[in-house]
Amino acid sequence: MTDCERAEELIPWYVAGSLSDEESGELAMHLATCDPCRAELARMVPLAMDLQAALGTVPGAPTELRETVTESAKRSGAPGIDVGSFLLGLSMGMSASGRGDPLQGDLRILGRKVPLFRLQQGGTERD
């Protein structure tokens, strides 16, 4: 896989703010020297914002559902009853994902901070 192919694969996650610091840094180094990948980033940012805005318009749960769920929970008794393989499989399959420290930078997309590289003539500069 070329650097550009790898960059294109990472750019959506970069824009979503969920890359590790290490990957963000690596991608940023590439973006600093690659016009086509910066252009790809410039296409991805508005798409990400469109997606987040559009998904936010998908209806939330109807108000009356709260009572239904609460009542079912009460009827089902106290927690601790076995609920089968759903949760078991999931909790076993999880790997650690926690990178607690927020990414630094001054671009806020989708409510999250993304390390930003100023796209300007004469190169790219990290804040």
Binding site: A61, A73, S76, P79, V83, S91, M94, S97
Partner: peptide
């Protein structure tokens, strides 16, 4: 899905292992 998921959380909260984000779980 909302109903079944939240009931599963009610009944299975103790199964959360803490190795992932709560939202991922």
């Amino acid at each position: 899905v909302v109903q079944e998921t939240l009931l599963a959380v009610w009944k299975g909260a103790q199964r959360f292992r803490g190795t992932s984000k709560v939202s991922t779980w």
